[in-house]
């Protein structure tokens, strides 16, 4: 497939929008991770701010509710000294007649430099990026089932911090791959970064068609799928999947795909457990695992700020920042 996503890069190959992992090079993804290393220190300073984006305005444009993602984007922008505008646009308001394009034009008139967009439609971020003025950047904070690239990059950051190189790693992603923008972006990022093996583990009803073409090995059995993996990524299961005949019950799902301490024994002894949150305890995983020593779920949240600072700084054209003093975990 020929990637058509060069819309993300400017004519010198630098990040202009961040819409999807698809089509981005290993060099660019590594640059994001390296920059994020530099920013990880900022949050631990007494004054948690750098003046890289002073005078810039970031609009968080959320057409879908979200607490964690919006908050970490807001913190990331503020720590870069940008001004932040939070807009929760309920879809009922746009349904009243204002098109997405109208909403956008209005905000552009307020001289916003960066749009951080979450939208229930796949491709919404691409659509917006195609229609904004040339100086405006768009960062995808999740569009439909398509992509959630900053989440994937914070996951890559977490994995790199714990495991170092990707080339020797086996990573398993467990759960509702079909509806997950996070899983799509993770699979693409893991493959671009040279991960040895990416596995997806789910029943047939929760796997998209031809999922292998994304670059993942398919397993239907959890015990078999997590054998000898270095990283286990659990996905959130929406309750509405019980309707629509995708799954019989949460009970059976947990029996088959829920992660417990016992099942985790099959993974490598130093395997880490991740989850993009929010967790359904007792559906995707036991509390014991979620709060256990192998869980890095809260670190993911912390690192999310550094990674989003890196992406925003790069897209807004701020000069690269050196990794400062080494940071403690």
């Amino acid at each position: 497939m020929i990637p058509q996503y060069d819309i993300q890069l400017d004519d010198r190959g630098r990040l202009r929008h961040f819409l999807t992992i698809d089509g981005l090079s290993r060099r660019l993804l590594t640059e994001i991770l390296d920059q994020a290393e530099g920013f990880a220190g900022v949050s631990e300073q007494r004054v948690k701010k750098v003046p890289l984006c002073r005078g810039k305005t970031v609009a968080n444009l959320f057409f879908e509710t979200s607490t964690r993602t919006r908050t970490t984007f807001e913190l990331a922008a503020k720590r870069l000294s940008a001004d932040v505008l939070n807009l929760n646009i309920s879809l009922s308001a746009t349904a009243k007649g204002e098109t997405l394009l109208d909403t956008l034009r209005n905000l552009e008139a307020m001289h916003v430099d960066t749009f951080v967009v979450r939208h229930p439609d796949s491709g919404a971020a691409h659509f917006i990026a195609r229609h904004v003025a040339p100086h405006v950047s768009v960062i995808n904070a999740g569009d439909g089932r398509h992509a959630h690239p900053t989440q994937a990059m914070l996951d890559m950051f977490t994995i790199r911090r714990h495991k170092g190189r990707f080339s020797s790693l086996r990573v398993a992603i467990v759960g509702d791959i079909l509806h997950s923008r996070v899983a799509r972006s993770q699979i693409l990022a893991l493959n671009t970064l040279g991960t040895a093996e990416v596995r997806v583990i789910a029943p047939r009803t929760l796997l998209p068609a031809d999922v292998r073409t994304l670059g993942a090995h398919v397993f239907h059995d959890l015990a078999e799928g997590i054998r000898d993996v270095d990283v286990v990524i659990m996905l959130r299961l929406q309750k509405e999947r019980m309707r629509g005949a995708l799954l019989p019950s949460e009970h059976e799902y947990f029996q088959l795909y829920g992660l417990t301490e016992e099942r985790l024994q099959a993974a490598r002894p130093d395997a880490i457990v991740m989850h993009p949150g929010p967790i359904n305890r007792g559906v995707e995983m036991d509390s014991q695992v979620a709060d256990g020593p192998r869980s890095v779920i809260l670190q993911q949240v912390t690192y999310g700020i550094a990674v989003r600072m890196a992406v925003m700084a790069m897209a807004m054209g701020a000069p690269p920042r050196d990794a400062g003093e080494p940071q403690d975990e």
Partner: peptide, 8 residues
């Protein structure tokens, strides 16, 4: 494969 990649 395209629907899978684009999440449509």
């Amino acid at each position: 494969r395209v629907s899978t990649r684009l999440g449509l």
